[in-house]
Design a protein around this nucleic acid. Structure first.
Lengths: 223, 223
DNA sequence: ATATTGAATATTGGATCCAATCTTGATATT
DNA sequence: AATATCAAGATTGGATCCAATATTCAATAT
């Protein structure tokens, strides 16, 4: 298992820090599908006992990032082609709705911030940053909707597929297309066109879905 | 705190049993908003230590049913009018989509089961049963969609508002309207009309939303 | 050689204990 | 009387220890 050790401070619970670190490691692909997550090993890395580690693992299980089998330990949860496809449809539906609700209330500050994140995403050449920069871009466009519950659920869904999204961006044309589509979405928002913003967002996600499915299927055939 | 004690078997983890019991108690309204959930007290009720209780509480927090404040204990999570309204919009969107996807694949067995649950819901006069019977009815109509991720998210959203749904059903006309609308949805599915089923489902949820908001607002004014 | 048994080891789930923090209530101060 | 202070009790977060279960691997039987 590859995982950096982290010192635990006192302002946050140890369980939360272990949770955040493991979540990031899984999302960034540092840990692969099926990798076992031994409580002892993780506890040693964080200089804690297994108790907070177990809490982190149950939280990760609820997020769908970890599978916990009684007396047999936890492993990093993979994803089937069907699940991945479903989650992209799910995101497409929700994110379309959220951005449509957002546009009419969108502040200049949010638009400016979105444009900044759009640039950052274009400028970055570190695949590990892409996920976070992508989130920030979309979140800047979503948050004025005020739909906090929707946003939390979308965030969870993203966690579940982010590893695979990165693989997809690394494929031919992946990055270029993402940038083009981000710009389209941004311009629709700047123009105050809610239904176009929603449609572009849905297309953006559906396009990613198609690429990802192709990727997962070739990977499955290789194995 | 009102809560029956339960014997913990060996086939499931104690944490899961505590989780299920607390979830049900909260959903059924046996525990009210803001009620403190003391680890010792709960552990004693289930004849366990606080360890599995804590795991149950963290899981419940992720479900939005409990609020956990560091060193200050857990309380049953309430819900604001805004949150409730948002969750009904959320459900309306998702459940409309799911039932539309379901109709074309719906088996006679599922339709029969739905009709049975429809009857059970009509026949029942125990408010505590309504939530479960309502779920079964809708679930029978949703499951042939095969959209397991959507269904899990919908279930979570229902958990968050079920307490308030019951209050809403108890209001004037609440039950009658639910029964009428259930029948409409069922007939649309039997007729194989996906878009009508979706539209009826959305209206069903939006209607409940309006009633619930009225209820929550009068309650807020009373306090 | 292959399959089967069972002891040794590894690993998790839970109980008990300790430390850190919060809450309460009595006392002191203005 | 109202507010501030601080000690005692209550409660949680985490560490250590024990019990229950799973896995591994050598010895045995077919």
């Amino acid at each position: 298992m590859k995982l950096r050790s982290v010192d635990i401070g006192k302002t946050t619970s140890a369980a939360s820090i272990v949770f955040d670190s493991l979540r990031q490691a899984i999302i960034e692909g540092e840990l692969d599908d099926g990798d076992p997550l031994r409580q002892d090993e993780i506890a040693a890395l964080f200089n804690t006992s297994r108790i907070p580690v177990r809490e982190a693992l149950t939280r990760l299980e609820q997020h769908g990032l970890v599978e916990n089998r009684r007396y047999r330990g936890a492993v990093v949860a993979g994803i089937s082609v069907d699940e991945a496809a479903e989650i992209f449809d799910f995101r497409s539906l929700l994110e379309g709705e959220v951005i449509a609700a957002s546009v009419s209330r969108m502040t200049p500050a949010s638009l400016l911030e979105a444009r900044r994140h759009f640039q950052d995403f274009m400028d970055s050449d570190d695949p590990l940053e892409w996920g976070e920069l992508n989130r920030r871009f979309h979140y800047a466009l979503y948050r004025d909707s005020g739909l906090t519950y929707h946003l939390k659920v979308i965030d969870n869904a993203l966690d579940r597929v982010e590893r695979y999204l990165r693989a997809q961006l690394l494929m031919t044309d992946g990055l270029d297309r993402a940038n083009r589509e981000h710009l389209e979405i941004l311009e629709a928002c700047e123009a105050g066109d809610a239904s176009r913003a929603a449609e572009c967002t849905r297309q953006h996600i559906q396009g990613a879905k198609r690429t990802l499915i192709a990727f997962l299927e070739t990977r499955a055939n290789d194995a």
